[in-house]
Computed example of a mutant assay.
Amino acid sequence: MTSEDLNVSRETFAKLDAFVKLVQKWTAKINLISRQSEAELWERHILDSAQLFALAPPFETWVDLGSGGGFPGIVVSILAQEKSRDQRFVLVESDLRKGTFLRTAIRELGLNAKVISGRIEEIEPLNADVLSARALAELDVLLEFAERHLKSGGTALFPKGSLWETEHQKARMRWSYECDPIRSKTNPDAAILKIKDISRV
């Protein structure tokens, strides 16, 4: 993987590379990512996360739910530095060890981000312009989280695997929302669901 592949500056690529090394170091201790996906870290996690940043509308506050190993929260924070230093990122992670990892990454990489350690359904509403969640829950549950933490007029970006259409149909039974499914660049069967105007049926 090169800076040209990601269409970023060499400085940004160097930060992403530093983050990759942090993930590898900490995974040995706290299992941030699966062993089998370590070999594909750039493609499966970095590039997969980076495509969300390209789809985001203009924003001030981006909230990433269940940030885990920092995908996409840390990755989009790094990419934002190249464009604007005013955008803020909030990473929500209830696992204290992963929260410690995220805070370490934020400090070492000098990112404009903070970590909230708590349960998504219990913390104060975060009023996000953009809300993301990767590999966290079914769409039906994610929409509940979005109802709580996404500001009016905000956009949710939810990467989903090959069963995204099934989840979408199930969610329609409880929720009304505008959904633009965008084919994933890293998996032709997957999609990023760009969602707005969420309300209960």
Rank of each mutant, 00 (worst) to 15 (best):
K160I: 05
T155D: 02
L157W: 13
G154I: 05
D129Q: 06
A156D: 12
G153H: 14
L150R: 07
V115M: 02
D129H: 13
S132E: 04
E144W: 14
H149T: 07
D140N: 15
S132R: 07
L157Q: 10
L142A: 06
A137K: 12
R148P: 11
R134P: 03
G161Y: 09
S152F: 09
E124Q: 01
S117R: 01
V141S: 10
R119V: 11
L142M: 15
D140C: 03
N127F: 06
V141A: 11
I116P: 14
A137Y: 02
L157N: 10
T155Y: 04
K151D: 06
P159W: 05
G153M: 13
K114Q: 05
L142S: 11
K160R: 15
G118Q: 09
K160H: 10
E121V: 01
A128D: 05
G118C: 05
S162H: 15
A133F: 06
G161F: 06
L139V: 05
R119A: 11
G161R: 03
I116E: 11
K151T: 04
S152G: 05
S152N: 11
L142Y: 09
I116S: 10
A133D: 04
V130P: 07
G154H: 05
E121D: 08
P125A: 01
S162K: 15
L163G: 07
G153D: 10
R134S: 10
P125W: 01
L131E: 10
G153E: 13
R148G: 04
A128F: 12
V115D: 00
S162E: 15
K114A: 00
T155H: 08
A135I: 08
K114M: 02
K160G: 09
S132F: 02
A146S: 13
L136D: 13
E124K: 00
A133W: 07
F145I: 09
E121K: 06
R148A: 10
E138D: 15
A133G: 15
I120H: 12
L142T: 12
